[in-house]
């Protein structure tokens, strides 16, 4: 069996915050990602969904070794890359690409689009000038930009077009693994679907593997093969997109689904949203036991003291909730 493209085992990322002024207390530590197990198969799209501060972007960066890892392992095609340094790390990273929320910040404003796309090809020995020209034209076609756009600068583009350029740059080397970090959230609804369709077309054309980070489950679930839901540094549910949305096992996933508005006034008027009490607790001081227990509508005494393990919730579908163990289920 081929190993997954990317695999995380007990992956933990901690940040040490600056200590208090004139205090002798040790500086506070935040576990942004806490003992996460995860794997992404070749050609697969895994959507990583959660609210701000849940650690989803940090996890994405740790998987491609652009974020230092405190504990656990990361495997790339079965090979442990956790401790790679220097040239070996650079070589491994060339198999990865990242796409950001704000394409403007990730593009060099002084570089023409052609050079932005040609540069990675030149650096990685992409062939003669004619061959590079051909590859750039091919990728411009693939992302739906006119070839003449190569002569322009990023500021001459609209937000949606800039995101297309950023995507083109990420895809031009046909990387093994792409982390897309909220690439839709700065775009209008109409452009979000356009750009998502582009991601879809590119993965088919170049057999790409994505980790697609998003706060909007309703937007990405249909596009993803599998969905992982993250809450306060932990993956609380993971499974095939269709079964996770049809039969969400974790109360937090249920709340995310219930909160997504639908463009249907009749449906909306009749729908009651289960209220989550309060807001996300500070990651500095996460609740003991199940991290979701302070907001969970189904909280039981055990949830306050014992952290729930990942339990089966269906074929290839797991969730970290004590209700699954009690046999009653949270529905």
């Amino acid at each position: 069996m081929t190993p997954p493209v990317i695999e995380a085992r007990g992956l933990t990322v901690s940040f040490t915050l600056p200590g208090g002024f004139l205090t002798r207390r040790p500086p506070p530590t935040v576990q942004a990602v806490s003992a996460v197990d995860l794997s992404v198969a070749k050609g697969e799209t895994l959507a990583l969904v959660g609210e701000s501060g849940c650690g989803k972007s940090t996890l994405g960066r740790a998987l491609i070794r652009t974020q230092s890892i405190s504990n656990g392992r990361v495997l790339f095609k079965g090979r442990d890359i956790t401790d790679l340094k220097g040239e070996a790390l650079r070589a491994a990273r060339s198999s990865f690409q990242m796409i950001f929320q704000d394409p403007y910040a990730s593009l060099n404003p002084k570089m023409r689009v052609f050079d932005t796309l040609a540069e990675p090809l030149r650096v990685h020995g992409g062939g003669s000038r004619a061959e590079i020209r051909e590859r750039v034209d091919e990728i411009l076609d693939a992302v739906g930009l006119d070839r003449s756009f190569g002569a322009r600068y990023p500021h001459e583009f609209s937000g949606g077009q800039r995101q297309r350029v950023a995507i083109a740059r990420a895809v031009v080397l046909k990387p093994d693994f792409i982390v897309a970090d909220e690439p839709l959230s700065a775009l209008d609804v109409s452009l979000q679907l356009q750009v998502l369709k582009l991601f879809d077309a590119l993965r088919r054309r170049f057999s790409l593997t994505y980790l697609f980070v998003s706060h909007d489950l309703a937007r990405v679930f249909g596009f993803a093969d599998r969905v992982a839901v993250m809450y306060l540094g932990k993956i609380v549910e993971i499974g095939p997109a269709t079964s996770l949305v049809a039969r969400p096992a974790h109360p937090y996933t249920q709340a995310l689904i219930a909160a997504a508005p639908s463009p249907d006034p009749v449906l909306e008027a009749s729908r009651e949203v289960p209220r989550l009490s309060g807001e996300i607790p500070s990651p500095l001081d996460p609740p003991g036991g199940c991290r979701f227990h302070t907001r969970c509508p189904f909280v039981m005494p055990v949830c306050r003291s014992v952290e729930p393990p990942m339990l089966p919730a269906g074929p290839d579908h797991r969730a970290a909730c004590h209700l699954l163990g009690s046999g009653t289920g949270p529905a």
Partner: peptide
């Protein structure tokens, strides 16, 4: 109609979600 078809929704298959082509 295009805006409506572009909204995120859980009850329409991704293949059936149709974006508005082009840009403003």
């Amino acid at each position: 109609a295009g805006l409506l078809a572009s909204t995120s929704r859980l009850d329409v298959a991704f293949a059936d979600q149709k974006p508005i082509p082009g840009s403003p």
